[in-house]
């Protein structure tokens, strides 16, 4: 009886420690999924964004845009200021289909998909960085560090993913699972960009309030300030059409 009890105890101990290890490796994927959930659980979203470009001398220039997005792959981005750029709009659709509308020409044009590593509208964000796809669908995570407040994940692109980055190192808030910072590394292993996030709770969701993206090589930065956020107002797919783009 005693031996049985002991063996149960031993067994339980083994299982317990085994479970801890198991939980740990599963945790990483779970953490990333939780991040995805924080980032992309809203069905749709409308907001204004102020884009501030900061050059190496510290001088700033400002642009503003209205954004609507639905799910992970529909987004309409329309510039409202400065006046010279007002009306220029981007439409992203599933399967990497992208359109730009040029008001001065009154015409839209489709943009090829393999420009994803190009900068978006002169900012330090690439089309790739602007993408709203689930992180867990693009990257294999690895927990490399943690402290009282954050997890540090190394995100390695899944095989076959077309990206300029060899990895991202992302710090994630332990309590609420929103990203705090992200470091981007090129294929030579050099850190090329650095993002700092500020999140706030808007209704049921965590929402990015400000993202600062620094291009380390160019000594140039872009600040995106998000405001007037409205979630889940039931935007229809019809809002994301070329016809709407041209309005």
């Amino acid at each position: 009886m005693k031996t049985f009890k002991l063996s149960v105890l031993a067994c339980a101990f083994v299982m317990l420690t085994g479970t801890i290890n198991y939980v740990k490796s599963q945790d990483v994927n779970e953490i990333l999924q939780k991040v995805d959930k924080v980032l992309y659980s809203a069905k749709d979203q409308q907001n204004k964004v102020t884009i501030i470009l900061i050059d190496k001398s510290g001088s700033e220039s400002k642009r503003e845009a209205d954004v609507i997005q639905k799910g992970n792959d529909m987004r309409l981005f329309r510039f409202t200021s400065p006046a010279s750029q007002a009306g220029i709009a981007f439409l992203s659709l599933p399967k990497d289909v992208m359109y730009i509308y040029m008001p001065a020409f009154g015409k839209e044009r489709r943009i090829a998909s393999h420009v994803k590593n190009q900068k978006f509208a002169g900012t330090d964000f690439s089309y790739d960085d602007m993408e709203a796809k689930l992180l867990s669908s693009k990257y294999d995570p690895e927990l490399i560090d943690q402290d009282n407040e954050t997890y540090t994940l190394k995100l390695v692109p899944k095989p076959g993913l077309k990206t300029d980055y060899s990895k991202q190192v992302m710090k994630i808030n332990k309590q609420d699972f929103y990203p705090v910072t992200a470091e981007y590394f090129d294929k030579g292993g050099n850190k090329v960009k650095e993002a700092t996030y500020q999140y706030e709770k808007v209704g049921n969701y965590w929402s990015a309030k400000e993202i600062l993206m620094k291009d380390i090589k160019r000594n140039h930065a872009t600040k995106m300030i998000v405001s007037d956020v409205i979630f889940d107002q039931g935007l229809s797919d019809d809002e994301f059409t070329v016809r709407k783009l041209k309005q």
Binding site: Q85, I88, I100, M102, P103, A104, F105, F120, A121, G122
Partner: peptide, 15 residues
Amino acid sequence: EKAKIVNLWFLLDGQ
């Protein structure tokens, strides 16, 4: 027109 140039510029920006 300058407006057209600014529009075209927009896509080249950041290259």
